[in-house]
């Protein structure tokens, strides 16, 4: 027998079935193969829809009442919300080659400038946990699901990552017009602005932005800039971030990342 269809299971989860239908569905849930998984699948979809604000008010209220009643449920919702922020790197109409990595380390390159060590400061414990997730050193994410010529990929560079000796290879699977760099910086005691310099391996400058003011979110300080993809080198680019501290007489502090772009 086929599992009940998704819309029926959805109504069951939202408590929109008659009592008789509910009892029948519950019997199928216990006694038929696959119904429990189908129900779980529909529950995931409901959480995703809730997180993406795709539900009507009545359904939202039902989700809150029946599917978000426990701490574990609300944490699952947080994960659903995070998943909804992860854009689709591929689409069914443009399949990715099976087994191809999203990114991987390539040949090591010595770093020329090493910043003074510093610690992430975070008021909330959770922010410290986020810092512990610093293996997420480099991410390229097309910002929207349907790729168009005006789309932007995000490249997040965390402080810990640039201390390593390896350049990173970044595969961008769909055409994007701009690369947005979001780079973690040290929470400076003095007011600072930053310069981001993008150059090729030979030191030729490809792009530069000055007087960037750091922003803070969740215990992280970062600067952002957007670079046209057309100016970037298909091979390795060196991204240098330099702090300009107001009133400081010392040498500016610089951090360096190396990134290799693989474009479609």
């Amino acid at each position: 027998m086929n599992s009940p269809d998704n819309s029926t299971l959805r109504r069951l989860l939202l408590h929109q079935t008659s009592e008789a239908e509910q009892r029948l569905l519950e019997e199928r849930l216990l006694s038929e193969e696959g119904v429990a998984d189908a129900l779980r699948d529909v529950e995931n979809d409901l959480l995703d829809d809730y997180a993406a604000k795709r539900l009507a008010a009545e359904d939202r209220a039902s989700v809150e009442k029946y599917l978000l009643a426990t701490v574990a449920d609300r944490r699952r919702l947080q994960i659903a919300a995070a998943l909804s922020r992860t854009p689709n790197a591929t689409s069914p109409s443009a399949p990715a080659p099976a087994g191809s990595p999203n990114w991987s380390s390539v040949a090591s390159a010595p770093e020329q400038v090493v910043p003074k060590p510093w610690r992430l400061r975070g008021r909330a414990r959770i922010a410290l946990v986020a810092a512990a997730c610093a293996i997420l050193a480099i991410i390229a994410l097309p910002k929207i699901g349907r790729i168009g010529s005006g789309t932007t990929a995000d490249l997040v560079l965390l402080a810990d990552q640039q201390r390593g000796a390896a350049a990173r290879s970044l595969e961008i699977r769909a055409p994007v017009a701009r690369l947005r760099l979001q780079i973690e910086v040290s929470p400076a005691a003095d007011p600072s602005t930053y310069v981001i310099d993008v150059s090729d391996q030979n030191g030729h400058r490809l792009y530069e932005a000055e007087r960037l003011t750091p922003r803070t979110a969740g215990g992280y300080s970062f600067v952002e800039m957007s670079v046209p993809m057309s100016v970037l080198n298909p091979a390795v680019q060196r991204i240098i971030v330099t702090a300009r501290q107001t009133g400081s007489r010392g040498q500016p502090v610089a951090s360096v990342w190396e990134v290799s772009l693989n474009r479609p």
Binding site: Q78, R123, A124, I126, A217, G218
Partner: peptide, 14 residues
């Protein structure tokens, strides 16, 4: 704190 937690969840997910 909520924003920080969301960012932590997102970072962990990625």
């Amino acid at each position: 704190e909520r924003a920080a937690e969301s960012e932590a969840v997102f970072a962990a997910l990625q």
